[in-house]
Amino acid sequence: MTATEAEAETDSAVVGEETYADGTLVRDPDIEESLSQDEYDPKGTLALLLVYFLILALMWTYMYFVEFLGNGATVIG
């Protein structure tokens, strides 16, 4: 256990006969393939994060209208 965690690139038996969580969802070896670090390019992650940053920027803009245009000036200090 320790070994699997601490050692890099042990590709063996990562995909195989295994079941999920409570044993109900069985993996299908037909459609599964093992993707190593070099073969894998997380472009979906990039896409999702870009969407998130876009939403953040829009929400910030929205807050600007609420804070500065919706109310009078805020006194600081």
Binding site: T4, E5, A8, V14, E18, G23
Partner: peptide, 14 residues
């Protein structure tokens, strides 16, 4: 419970 394997797969980049 069945098939409760508790080993976790190694990281892609170790």
């Amino acid at each position: 419970a069945r098939n409760l394997d508790s080993a976790l797969p190694p990281a892609l980049s170790g």
